[in-house]
Simulated scan of single mutants.
Amino acid sequence: MPDFVAPTSIVRRIWGTSDTVLFIFAGAAAEFALNKAVDWLYFTGRLPADPLGRLFTTVDYARRIVFANQAGAERAIDTIAAIHGAVEARRGQSIPDWAYRDVLFMLIAYSIKAFEVLERPLTMTECEEITAVFCRVGRRMGIPDLPTSYPAWLLAREQHLAQNLAASAYTTDLYLQYRKHLGGPRYQLLRAIQGRVVPPVVRQLLRLPSGAFLQPALAFYGLTKHWPASQWAKNALLPTDYQARIQALDGAPVEEAEPSGAAVIPLRCPIGHQVNV
């Protein structure tokens, strides 16, 4: 059975590195706070209770798809799509197609940006590969009008950023929850990291710092990230209760049974904060 993503793919390298994954979700957490479909985050009211736990559950699901074989990935994607359908039926309306694309585009955008901030510039071939992988996920989920190339995605991404973002009361509340669950120092670090990876329009709407002061630390971290002592940089972003889960993000995920009871909905609902049913 072939793998859904080739073992040598840049996508596996990105999603098998805890540093990069944390930066991906820092950026996505910022952008979706501005998304005009952000009300879906609040449909069940579960988000404020455990935003960090929701982040890790979303990471786990995304990584299962990236590291699964073709059949396993398709089963996971089909389950996610079915859960979304159930949530839409429960609310009595559909999540707009553009909102589905926005979230998929965030996976592409922040996979690229996080890797480039922490590692090196990506080649055009690597950017095409990242775009192709996540658009395959989207097509399997039935998301329409997805781009067929990296240049086409760049154009669609700019259109989405221009049309689908606005600050709202939900934006304010989400950032209050981030601060509550992270604490002051980690919250400020989160905002600095977000400032390094988000597009200018997102940085402006959220009044994020540029994060330029992080560059010397990031450069030093790049030289020492393989040292055991470098774990402090990852642990600095999240509370100590999550250290084991941060370490588990390095490498392929361990195969586990699907969780019972509440089902988690990544990808077609806000990154890092799922609606549960």
Score class of each variant (00 low, 15 high):
Ala6Val: 11
Arg54Leu: 00
Val59Leu: 04
Leu52Gly: 02
Ile10Phe: 01
Trp40Pro: 04
Ser9Tyr: 10
Ala33Tyr: 09
Ala29Leu: 04
Ala33Asp: 03
Leu22Phe: 05
Trp15Leu: 12
Thr57Lys: 04
Ala29Asn: 15
Asn35Ile: 03
Glu31Phe: 02
Arg46Gln: 06
Ala28Lys: 09
Arg13Ser: 12
Val5Pro: 01
Phe32Pro: 02
Pro2Cys: 01
Thr8Glu: 15
Pro51Cys: 00
Trp15Arg: 02
Leu52Glu: 06
Val11Pro: 10
Thr44Tyr: 03
Glu31Ser: 14
Ala33Arg: 13
Thr57Trp: 08
Val38Lys: 00
Ala37Arg: 14
Trp40Ile: 14
Ala33His: 06
Phe32Val: 15
Leu34His: 03
Pro48Tyr: 10
Val5Glu: 01
Ile14Met: 02
Trp15Thr: 00
Val59Thr: 08
Val5Thr: 15
Ala33Asn: 09
Ala37Leu: 09
Thr44Gly: 11
Gly16Thr: 06
Ala29Ile: 05
Met1Gly: 15
Asp3Arg: 13
Asp3His: 07
Gly45Pro: 11
Tyr42Arg: 09
Leu47Tyr: 13
Leu22Met: 15
Asn35Gln: 09
Phe25Met: 07
Thr57Met: 06
Val38Phe: 02
Trp40Ala: 10
Ser18Asp: 08
Ser9Phe: 06
Asp3Ser: 13
Arg46Pro: 00
Tyr61Glu: 14
Trp15His: 15
Ala6Met: 04
Arg12Trp: 05
Ala30Asp: 06
Val59Ser: 00
Val11Asn: 12
Ala62Asp: 13
Tyr42Ser: 14
Gly53Asp: 06
Lys36Gln: 12
Glu31Asp: 08
Gly45Asn: 12
Pro51Arg: 06
Thr44Ser: 08
Arg46Tyr: 12
Gly45Phe: 12
Ala28Phe: 09
Leu47Asp: 13
Asp19Gln: 08
Phe43His: 06
Val38His: 05
Gly16Ile: 10
Trp40Met: 03
Arg12Gln: 13
Leu41Trp: 00
Ser9Arg: 13
Ala28Pro: 11
Tyr42Lys: 04
Leu55Trp: 04
